[in-house]
Nucleic acid binder design. Sequence first.
DNA 1: TATGAATGAGGATTCATTCAT
DNA 2: TATGAATGAATCCTCATTCAT
Lengths: 208, 208, 208, 208
Amino acid sequence: MQPGAAADEPERTFIETARRAQIVAAAIDTIAEAGFAGASFARIAERLGISRGLISYHFSGKGDLIKQVVHQAAEQAKAYIRPRILAESTGPGMLRAYIESNLAFMGEHRNNVIAMVEIARSAEGRRIFYGDTDVVDAVRALEHLLSGFQTAGQFRPDFNPHVMAIAIRAAIEAASPRLALDPEFDISNYAREIATAFHLATRVSDTP
Amino acid sequence: MQPGAAADEPERTFIETARRAQIVAAAIDTIAEAGFAGASFARIAERLGISRGLISYHFSGKGDLIKQVVHQAAEQAKAYIRPRILAESTGPGMLRAYIESNLAFMGEHRNNVIAMVEIARSAEGRRIFYGDTDVVDAVRALEHLLSGFQTAGQFRPDFNPHVMAIAIRAAIEAASPRLALDPEFDISNYAREIATAFHLATRVSDTP
Amino acid sequence: MQPGAAADEPERTFIETARRAQIVAAAIDTIAEAGFAGASFARIAERLGISRGLISYHFSGKGDLIKQVVHQAAEQAKAYIRPRILAESTGPGMLRAYIESNLAFMGEHRNNVIAMVEIARSAEGRRIFYGDTDVVDAVRALEHLLSGFQTAGQFRPDFNPHVMAIAIRAAIEAASPRLALDPEFDISNYAREIATAFHLATRVSDTP
Amino acid sequence: MQPGAAADEPERTFIETARRAQIVAAAIDTIAEAGFAGASFARIAERLGISRGLISYHFSGKGDLIKQVVHQAAEQAKAYIRPRILAESTGPGMLRAYIESNLAFMGEHRNNVIAMVEIARSAEGRRIFYGDTDVVDAVRALEHLLSGFQTAGQFRPDFNPHVMAIAIRAAIEAASPRLALDPEFDISNYAREIATAFHLATRVSDTP
DNA sequence: TATGAATGAGGATTCATTCAT
DNA sequence: TATGAATGAATCCTCATTCAT
């Protein structure tokens, strides 16, 4: 959850930065459309009307491009979600904000999220990020949130925060294929339902 | 949920049936091991010590093989899970049985489940099953269970059964990568936690 | 210098054996013609009128093919040269036989030798054979011959067998590019001259 | 053997001359390190911290650059070797000086020599110099030396100077890969041994 | 039934080169 | 002078599929 900055990034021209972003964006759309395995350099390049070689020119390899895809998508997601969580003060409020802002972001940036999920799910994608923190972070940060406020007494004390975090992330990510396939899928309703479900699953029990 | 037999299946010799089952089993293990994209005919054939061509001989294409993989895996899962659900009489009991038997089956047949999830998640796999019922069935059957007993007053009346079914399936399927990657993952504990969480999320509210 | 046999060679069909030999032969000619770097699968395949993929089908990679090229060429060379050396009884006789039979073989199998030298000289080729014995053997075997008969008093005692072996091999291999480029190059005359030169360079000094 | 200047060389600014020399030097080191095939413009440019394009700007093509590499290396070698030969008065003295100064230069300018040999050996390199005099010169000059003093009665009359020159050059050049690969290779000892060997091979026979 | 031979498309990547700036 | 952006050809390799045997 550390803010984006990496000290040793190579300096880049304006044009290069633009091209890289453009290619990353095209990669995101291509992955969302054709899946991770279907997102060949050829298809990405075709979408932009550039040569395959140019992608290799700007990225040191397929793995590099994929990493940038995830990085870019993750940064955007964090920028969207974090303030909405921090605007809340209670654990349950934050949990609801977490779920709803995650899904709201997904609704507004379908492809970003579809691409991330697609990458995370593919075996090759997991190989690229083997040992990388960025990916597991999503679950871990949520787990911390849960266990923190559980200790503070704002959540039911007898659930396993790790398991609960997995379940919540799974429910969020499950929206992704529906978004992609079902044009009538109502994501804000989905968000409300999920938030309520996990509110009930985590609240301190009401009877003494 | 109709039992395996389709009317227009071609007649098969004993040997052919055996070979097909053998190849499907090898495909399951290969997918579980190397991922969907990594499960080439070459690798599957190598595992069995047969020629690549033989797979093409027995299956009309890769899509056909994948369909059989899912079919075979799904049949086994149903055979395991259904009686355990039907042994229960109440809605909450059935829900708990659904969750726990699903995860128990996953624990005992890792590869079957990993393969199914791997296929369901891959874009190419989804393309193969586009419009196919087998895959959506898992969610739909659960949804029927929920809405049936919701009508009967055994579940909280104000949740959307479709959304809840998605969330439950997602939580169950999320166990798959953990099973594959984390050898210390305790699936029976995970099952208990998930069952409890969704029990709380679906029970009729206790306060008037 | 151990005879060809490798115990664990995979069994091969008649056709496969033939194809492999054919491809190796085409590779030899292509290397001789276009150099190591110029011997792409495409060019080799084109020469045979087969597809590029077929070469990949029969050989596990470029390195594998190159190894077979060297192996095949080396076996033929050994089969030609060894009996001619062993037919001699004295050190000087063997040395002359070594030089002359090497060069005679080169004259009769230009491409074989050109290919071997080309491979041995290219950086990539050396990478493939890094640590391999087959290649250094040529110098080492000669060195043993020299030092053996030097000890026996049949060669001048005060030369370094290793250095001398290098020089002799170099003189032999130097014929290769001439063979390739100069159609008028008289290799048997070259052989005689070289044999004489190194006879003089290695004989026990005639004056007491 | 004509001194460097060609009449129709284009005029060059100081900077251009410096850059060209710098690039040629980098090319030499790169070839020595990565082999001829491995010496791409990319690697050469990287070593200097300049752009690939700049090399294309200064040289009309890869062939041009390679020619300059050989030219520059050859000039340096000649400047080192010639005076050492001319300091001798007898044929055998000159031959020994030729061999020893060649090898001494190689010891002191490994990369120069390795690069030259690497180029001369590669098929692509030979293609570039097809019909070029610079390369054959090395052999031809030595051949003149041998035949001149042979006529003068200072060398054995019955050897073929052309063949002998080839053998001597080959022995000298054979040191190059050893220099590159074997850090313990003792080149001055090698030089002495070779010089002695060819002294014996070329001297007028001592017995009437 | 099963094999092994063969294809051809498509994969990422590297390369020398060109050109506007 | 020099750069950096871009190209297109060429590299090896893997894949699913076909077909004669």
